[in-house]
Simulated assay, not measured.
Amino acid sequence: MLKIRLTRMGAKKNPFYRIVVIDSREARNGAPADTIGWYDPAKLDAPVKIDEEKVLSWLGKGAQPTDTVRSILRKNGILAKFAEAKK
């Protein structure tokens, strides 16, 4: 099954995450099928950049977001758009 999850980048004690689509059996930093955005919790407002079209496409194909990614998508309103498009 494909998962939409975070992969850790950055230096020690200064994490930076990429939001990737990857097979659930792969390692955390394994080769992703697609990179759809990034998340930087080290900055004050924790900026997020997400390609909405790619996310909606992968969700439509059956990719499941992890809990953390689901909360990020919910905050950016992408899950609401997906639920609306699904109806």
Rank of each mutant, 00 (worst) to 15 (best):
M1E: 02
L2C: 03
L2R: 04
T7H: 01
R8Y: 02
R8G: 05
M9R: 10
A11C: 04
K12W: 05
K13H: 15
P15E: 04
F16I: 07
Y17K: 10
Y17H: 08
Y17R: 06
R18D: 08
I19H: 05
I22P: 09
I22M: 13
D23R: 08
S24E: 13
E26F: 06
E26K: 13
A27I: 13
A27E: 12
R28L: 13
N29S: 15
N29C: 13
N29P: 12
A31W: 14
A31C: 13
A31E: 12
P32L: 08
P32Q: 08
A33M: 11
D34R: 11
I36A: 07
W38Y: 15
W38S: 14
Y39N: 10
D40E: 10
D40R: 09
P41W: 10
P41L: 09
K43Y: 07
K43A: 13
L44P: 14
D45L: 08
D45P: 03
V48S: 09
V48Y: 00
K49L: 13
K49F: 14
K49I: 06
K49W: 09
K49P: 03
I50E: 06
D51Y: 11
D51H: 11
E52Q: 13
E52T: 14
K54N: 05
L56G: 04
L56W: 06
L56R: 07
W58H: 01
L59W: 03
G60R: 02
K61E: 00
A63C: 02
A63V: 00
D67A: 12
T68F: 00
T68Y: 02
T68H: 07
V69N: 06
V69W: 01
R70Y: 11
R70M: 04
I72N: 08
I72C: 09
L73N: 05
L73S: 07
R74Y: 11
R74P: 08
R74D: 14
K75V: 12
N76V: 11
G77D: 09
L79G: 06
A80E: 15
K81S: 08
K81A: 12
F82E: 04
E84W: 01
K86W: 02
K87A: 11
